[in-house]
Amino acid sequence: MAVLRVVDFQRRLLAQITLQAPDSVTLEFLNPENETDLRDTLTTFVDFCKYNGLSLRISRKVQKADHIIYINEQVLVKPNDERFLQALGDAISCYTFGNQSKRIFALMHKQ
C-alpha cells in the first residue's frame, strides 16, 4: 500500500494520506499540536481533489519506423486511479496552507 507523508520544512511528519481500494482516501494527522488553520485548509484541499480529480501530465516516447515522437498528455486522475496519490503529492507541494502560509511537502512512502 502506498502512503503519502506530509512533512513541513524541517521534515517533521505532520500527516499521512492513504489510498485504500477502490477509492477511499484517508487523511490522518499525526502531530496533535498542529495549527487548526493548517488542518482545516489541508482537509478542504484533499476533499476538493478527491471529488474533482487532479490534472496529471504524462510524457512518453513512441518509436516509429524511422523517427521518435514525444507525446505529452494531460489526464484527469481521481481516487480510483493508482496515480492519484502521486498527483496529490505534487499538488500539495505547490501550495502554501493555513493563515500563516505554511509550506508543506508530500513524499511517497511504500509500506
Rank of each mutant, 00 (worst) to 15 (best):
M1T: 00
L4R: 00
R5N: 13
R11C: 07
L13V: 10
L13S: 07
I17P: 03
T18Y: 02
T18S: 14
L19E: 03
L19S: 14
Q20G: 03
Q20R: 12
P22W: 04
D23V: 00
D23A: 02
S24A: 11
T26N: 04
E28K: 08
N31V: 09
N31A: 14
P32K: 03
E33A: 10
E33Q: 13
E35M: 06
E35Y: 05
T36F: 08
L38P: 09
D40I: 07
D40L: 15
T44P: 01
V46K: 05
N52E: 11
N52V: 05
G53T: 01
L54G: 04
S55I: 04
S55W: 07
L56M: 11
I58K: 15
S59W: 01
S59I: 04
K61Q: 15
V62R: 14
Q63W: 07
K64P: 01
I69T: 11
N72H: 11
L76V: 11
P79A: 00
N80P: 06
D81E: 13
E82W: 03
A87F: 02
G89V: 03
D90A: 09
I92M: 03
I92H: 08
Y95W: 07
T96G: 08
G98Q: 05
S101Q: 14
S101F: 14
K102A: 11
K102N: 10
K102P: 01
I104T: 06
A106N: 06
M108V: 00
M108R: 06
K110W: 10
